[in-house]
Write a protein that binds this DNA or RNA. Structure first.
Lengths: 198, 198
DNA sequence: TTATAAAAAACGACCGGTCGTATTTTTAAA
DNA sequence: TTTAAAAATACGACCGGTCGTTTTTTATAA
């Protein structure tokens, strides 16, 4: 493997394991050594990839949200005549995976917002932008659902997108400690099958 | 001050400071030394009060939720002919305080659910019971509001209490990183002034 | 040979927890 | 009521280990 290729490979590995460990143990509960061991990168090499743990954390956040954005985006494109259905199916898909994972990790964004959202400026900014991107996409989907007549129009798409994201985050936290998918299922039902309709 | 009195005094002080530090810096981000220094208790004495940091964390959780329960309970008693109004005023009061605190700390329960909800059995149980107690109280208030005809009756009080708690938690997380009370205000408006009404 | 990146070694600070001991409080016997 | 034994608490030094980061050395490529 080429030199530059390996460097990118290691960087990706660090980010992937960063997501896993930060989700399971939190930011302060995870040592760099654990992540480095998991991808066989020497400790001294870490700072060739990232300038600090804090900046690494910010990068992990961006790395984490990417698949969710592209998946939701795919759903919205696939069934562009039924945006509300696309959103419903997207979240239903997430719930299946959460159940498969036995409710171990919820959402990295939610966990890190609580843990370091107020203390690390760098991570706070990263969290802001990650959620903003996610919200904007959800908002555009809800706006189209309004045009298609499947979602009430007396609330702005932005307001509903924010409410859905916030409730989803809270439900994920509940899910973790209740070890049940009931909270997330109820979240989707209450909002997508009731409150957003009319 | 009597000796037994001092012991209880120190214990309370540790719990109070535990709430503050865990809220601001998280569980793993807070060392026992910080808390001990804040209440002038020697390191070696900590284990006369609590058997471990983990058990201390579980006690802090219970200590944290108590004032919220008693405050909501007071509101419900004060205006027992308007349970929905009591709930509205309770949350409005919380929002004022959050704004006074410049959105520094959100909710300890939400933060700890994400950080250690899946890793510490003891704290997980404490979080479960704390939230259950809070939910039961909110549920009873919503049930009375239903009897008073101010809240829709086609949803169970339990379902609405859960939804309100979860959305509130998610909104608190958003508030922290957006440094704005808009999320929590919107949470209360969307649910208490719209979704729960009929 | 020189410049550059990778990796090993080392850094001080701090972690949660334990230790022996000093002091106090409680218990029980006298 | 006084006294002696015992139990509980207070306390700071200290444990091995890990933290994130820096410095120094080694390997690689130009």
């Amino acid at each position: 493997m080429s030199k530059l290729g390996k460097k990118e490979f290691n960087r990706e590995g660090l980010l992937n394991q960063g997501v896993v460990f930060f989700m399971n143990q939190g930011y302060h509960g995870t040592g760099l050594q654990e992540i480095l061991d998991a991808v066989n990168v020497p400790k001294g090499s870490f700072y060739n990839y990232f300038s600090s743990k804090e900046e690494f954390g910010a990068a992990v956040i961006q790395h984490y949200i990417e698949p969710f954005i592209s998946r939701l985006s795919t759903h919205l494109q696939q069934s562009d005549s039924d945006a509300l259905g696309a959103i419903r199916r997207y979240f239903a898909e997430l719930i299946v995976e959460l159940e498969e994972n036995k409710f171990k990790g919820g959402c990295l964004l939610g966990s890190l917002m609580g843990e370091i959202g107020s203390t690390s400026d760098i991570c706070q900014q990263s969290l802001q932008s990650a959620i903003a991107r996610y919200r904007d996409l959800l908002q555009s989907g809800l706006a189209r659902a309004q045009q298609q007549g499947t979602v009430r129009t007396d609330k702005t798409p932005e307001e509903m997108a924010d409410l859905l994201i916030n409730t989803w985050q809270g439900a994920l936290l509940r899910m973790q400690i209740e070890k049940s998918s009931a909270p997330v299922k109820q979240c989707c039902h209450d909002l997508l099958d009731d409150f957003f309709i009319r």
